[in-house]
Amino acid sequence: MPQAVGVIETLGFPAVLAAADAMVKAAEVAIVYYDIAESGRLIVAVRGHVAEVKRAMESGIAAGEATFGGQVITHYIVPNPPENVEAVLPIHFTTKSEPFRIF
């Protein structure tokens, strides 16, 4: 079953924390990547089935925007990334995220 990728970029840590929390609570997804993008911008990426990622993204965007001072800068869903994209970008399951993988 193909695994979609959903990415949210926020301004500030509280917004990305709220978005990540809302995403994993709203749907069966696993966080596969989190990092600082640049100058106060943070990014979180989740993987799961397409419908689950869509539901998680809706919740994450709403939670990020609802955070005091929070701002969702951008977001995107890739329904079925090809293997060459997974090999280059940090969206694959790692040893840390593998226990949370949804099959």
Rank of each mutant, 00 (worst) to 15 (best):
G64E: 06
A22M: 06
I36A: 12
A19S: 11
V50L: 15
L17W: 01
V5S: 02
M1G: 13
A56V: 07
K54G: 01
I8A: 01
Q71D: 09
I77N: 12
Y76P: 00
N84K: 12
T94W: 11
E38K: 11
F13N: 01
A45V: 02
T95H: 08
P79C: 15
E98S: 02
N84M: 13
G64D: 10
A27N: 05
A19D: 09
G60A: 01
V72I: 09
I36R: 14
S97T: 10
F13S: 11
V32I: 12
H75R: 13
A22W: 12
R55S: 08
L42S: 04
L17A: 02
V16A: 01
A56D: 03
I77V: 15
V78Q: 15
D35Q: 07
E83M: 13
A20I: 02
D35G: 04
V32A: 05
A62L: 07
R47V: 04
L42W: 11
P81Y: 15
T94H: 11
S59T: 08
K25A: 00
R101S: 03
Y76R: 15
L42Y: 14
A26F: 13
I31H: 08
M23A: 02
V16W: 11
F68W: 01
A51G: 09
E28K: 08
A30R: 11
Q3F: 10
Y33L: 02
A66L: 08
P14K: 04
V32E: 07
I36F: 04
L11H: 04
M23N: 07
T10H: 03
T67N: 07
E98G: 00
A15H: 14
V5E: 02
A56F: 14
V5H: 00
I61R: 07
I91S: 02
